[in-house]
Nucleic acid binder design. Structure first.
Length: 108
DNA sequence: TTAATGACCTATC
DNA sequence: CGATAGGCCATTA
């Protein structure tokens, strides 16, 4: 049992059309300082295809400089396909697509 | 066990 | 706004 497993649980819980930040995942995982561990966990990506790493972005709303799926371009396409809004800067609209941590409980 | 690594975050200049 | 520095943590070799 590792933080690893826990992080995957959180990432998997991210609903489509929304994105979560490493810090958020870390916090949901149990500790807000696992941000780095989260990045490492996804980098390891022991279960590709099951873990939507493309839904995980940094605090700026931008992805890693070298995404594993095929680059940031691939991620942008995937997120756009899910309904995530992107800015001209190539960053995600955290104001609209940032996951609040709830599977369905929105905040109207 | 020690040392090294990393897809982070925050603060400061 | 861009760049730099430091700090935190877990995983791997």
């Amino acid at each position: 049992m590792t933080v690893f497993e826990r992080i995957y649980e959180i990432v998997r819980r991210i609903p489509s059309g929304k994105v979560a930040t490493y810090g958020m995942v870390a916090q949901l995982a149990g500790n807000p300082r696992w941000a780095r561990a989260v990045g490492y966990a996804l980098h390891s990506n022991p279960e590709p295809g099951i873990i939507p790493c493309h839904r995980v972005v940094n605090r700026s709303g931008g992805l890693a400089p070298a995404f594993a799926f095929g680059g940031e371009h691939a991620q942008r396409g995937l997120l756009e396909q899910e309904g995530v809004i992107f800015h001209e800067d190539g960053k995600v609209d955290l104001e609209r697509c940032l996951w609040n941590g709830l599977d369905e409980g929105e905040t109207p």
